[in-house]
Amino acid sequence: MFKKYLLNAFVLLCSFLLPISCSKDNDTPEHIHEEELITRVTLKIKKQGSADAAVTYTWNDDHEEEGHSEEEEGHDEDGVHVELEANSTYEVEVGFFNASDPADIEDITEEVKAEADEHQVFLELIEIQGLSIVAAANDSTDSNGNPLFLKSVWTTTAVSAGEVRVYLIHEPTAKSGSTRNDFGGEIDVKVDFHVDVE
């Protein structure tokens, strides 16, 4: 009797084990392409009234800086160097990209524009005196007409150096301010560009 039960149990066990073990072995998990990642931040800078082409400075997630990069003294982190001339005006465009798949680089800037009410770009000046930033006339705006600061105009005066910290803030509680705390919300992007005004 005991044996009979064990046999039944074994048959029962096998009957549900077999289909499962067979079906599972051949499956390989699908590759996930993360659409929401922002792995690259760019500043496209063009000097007003100059015939020179715009220069794009790129901050990449993977430490492979492109464009102008060099070790900075007194600073451990590698940074991207932006060189500007004093007493000039520049048109600057911020770009956000998902370059996690080099073969398929996505432009996230468009999404930010589409969800303008839920996003805000904040350009914070750190230890740099001779630079002021205002929104460009052709900048994208949210439903209340607040500029997103995707396009801005940078005016340089005196020679100085410092960082421009680019933030992309998600669901900000305020759309304007002079410090990070003024905006509330959560940080989607925080990268520094080293700027030399010469």
Partner: peptide, 25 residues
């Protein structure tokens, strides 16, 4: 006892899997 377990992380999340797919006996 015998236990078989299958874990499936749905790729539709479009987010990198926190834990991978596995099959455990």
């Amino acid at each position: 006892f015998m236990q078989i377990q299958d874990n499936f992380s749905n790729p539709d999340t479009q987010v990198k899997r926190l834990i991978p797919d596995y099959f455990k006996t």
